[in-house]
Every structure is written in structure tokens, then in C-alpha cells.
């Protein structure tokens, strides 16, 4: 109960009040690493509430805790302390396999280095998350083709990742994140490996996904990208420094 009230306080401080409508509630989250007898606080008592269809950027200097935050949001990592509610589910007490299931059902990841499977074609890469739902090949293919269409990549689908340009690879990765119809899309420096023209294309795609009702959370250190977002949260030394909407 104590953490709960403290969480509300923090939320007030962050000018973003938690409500039942929130898709994500991170309450008083800390993440500590032990480094040679010294404790590194990658996140330090952070409380964030994120609503459905939010379009949020985490910004901040290198080492401020952005990736740590995103990994916790994506159920890849667990906080050292604090509670996390995702889409009405309490994530803290889940086992590794249950977390895998949550990631499969609720979350779509987009990485800076694309992280496509090298021996699978673009189509097979997009189909891959559905394999873990034990969906038939035909159904997987149908859904994957739809997702590829949504990212504007319906040709070159039988190419392997090393036969695609960076922008095309990132589109495949976005299609892979979309194919499961997740409740949130998480992107860690999604344009970090792309040139400015391709970056613009990808950002236009993100804008459209936001417009279509998706919830997007993006980690970036580029202000132009943060400008696309509706809400910008700046982290500093593992704490929330500012939280603004525009």
C-alpha cells in the first residue's frame, strides 16, 4: 500500500496521473547493478504511467537508463524493486516462460541493429513470432503478408536480411513487431543505424502507426525524432528529469 501511495505522489510530481485506463503503470521502479562492490542505479525510483495510443519518447544522455527502462517495459528485464502492471496484468511475479508469453502477446520489439534472423527470409522473419503461438504455416503467411504490406514492403519478401538495405531491414523488423497485434511497440534507437532520408521514412511510418491506434514507445537521443512524439520523457541518472506533452 505504501508503494502505491508513493507511486501516486511520484505520478503527480511527474504531472501524469495514473488512472484505470493506463496501459502501463510502472510504480517506483528501481534497477540496480552491482559493479565491483559498487551499486549502479540504472533506474532510481521511477514511476511512469502510459496510456493507450500514447506516442512517447524516452530521451536522455548516454547511460541515463533509457535502454534499461525499455527492457523492463518490454518484460525482457525485471526491476530490482517496484511494480509493473501491463494491460491489467501484474508482471512482477511471472516466470521466465510466462514473460515470454507476455512478450509474444503484448509487445513488439524494434531494435537499433534490426536483429533479424540471418538464415530466414524477410517473410519467414515476420512469421517467426507466430510460430510460438503454434499457428499453421498458411495462417502465419497470411498475417505476415498483411504486416509487410502495412510497412510498405510487399516486394523483396523472399530476400534474406543481408540482401536488404538498412531501411528495408528495419521495415521487416517493424512488420515482425506488428504481426502479433501487440498492445505496445517498443523501439530502442530504431533509426540509429539509418541515414537521414531512411530515418524520415521510418518516422513517417511510426506516425501512421500512431494514427492507426498503436501505442509506441521510442528511445532516442535525436531531437528530430522526439519531435514526432506526443510525449517526451527525459531521463537523467536513472531518474525522470522532465515529462512533457506537445
Amino acid at each position: 500500500m505504501a508503494t502505491q501511495s508513493k507511486g501516486v505522489e511520484a505520478a503527480v510530481f511527474n504531472s501524469e496521473l495514473g488512472t484505470d485506463m493506463d496501459l502501463i503503470s510502472l510504480i517506483d521502479i528501481s534497477k540496480h547493478y552491482q559493479m565491483g562492490g559498487q551499486t549502479v542505479k540504472a533506474l532510481d525510483s521511477v514511476t511512469v504511467h502510459i496510456a493507450k495510443n500514447d506516442y512517447l519518447a524516452f530521451i536522455g544522455s548516454s547511460g541515463s537508463g533509457k535502454s534499461t527502462m525499455l527492457n523492463i517495459l518490454g518484460c525482457l528485464d525485471r526491476p530490482s524493486i517496484g511494480t509493473y502492471h501491463l494491460n491489467g496484468k501484474d508482471v512482477d511475479s511471472l516466470t521466465e516462460n510466462e514473460l515470454s508469453e507476455i512478450r509474444n502477446l503484448e509487445i513488439g520489439f524494434i531494435f537499433q541493429s534490426f536483429n533479424l534472423l540471418p538464415r530466414s527470409t524477410a517473410l519467414a522473419n515476420v512469421m517467426q513470432p507466430l510460430v510460438y503461438r503454434n499457428i499453421s504455416y498458411k495462417a502465419r503467411k497470411k498475417l505476415a503478408l498483411e504486416a509487410l504490406q502495412r510497412v510498405g514492403l510487399d516486394s523483396r519478401i523472399s530476400h534474406f536480411p543481408n540482401q536488404l538495405s538498412g531501411g528495408q531491414r528495419q521495415r521487416v523488423a517493424i512488420a515482425r513487431a506488428l504481426v502479433t497485434e501487440p498492445s505496445i511497440l517498443l523501439a530502442d534507437e530504431p533509426t540509429g543505424n539509418l541515414d537521414s532520408r531512411t530515418t524520415d521514412e521510418i518516422m513517417i511510418l511510426f506516425d501512421r502507426l500512431h494514427h492507426d491506434g498503436h501505442t509506441l514507445i521510442i528511445v532516442t537521443h535525436e531531437t528530430e525524432i522526439a519531435d514526432h512524439c506526443k510525449r517526451v520523457v527525459e531521463l537523467k541518472d536513472g531518474r525522470i528529469f522532465s515529462d512533457s506533452r506537445h
Partner: peptide, 16 residues
């Protein structure tokens, strides 16, 4: 290792 990480991130369970 990285591929395994990717598969787990997109929903592979241990048994997969």
C-alpha cells in the same frame, strides 16, 4: 546467442 536472444524477445519459451 544473439539469435536466441531475439527469439526469446519475440516470444520463444525455453522449450522452443
Amino acid at each position: 546467442t544473439r539469435e536466441i536472444g531475439v527469439c526469446k524477445a519475440i516470444g520463444a519459451k525455453s522449450h522452443h
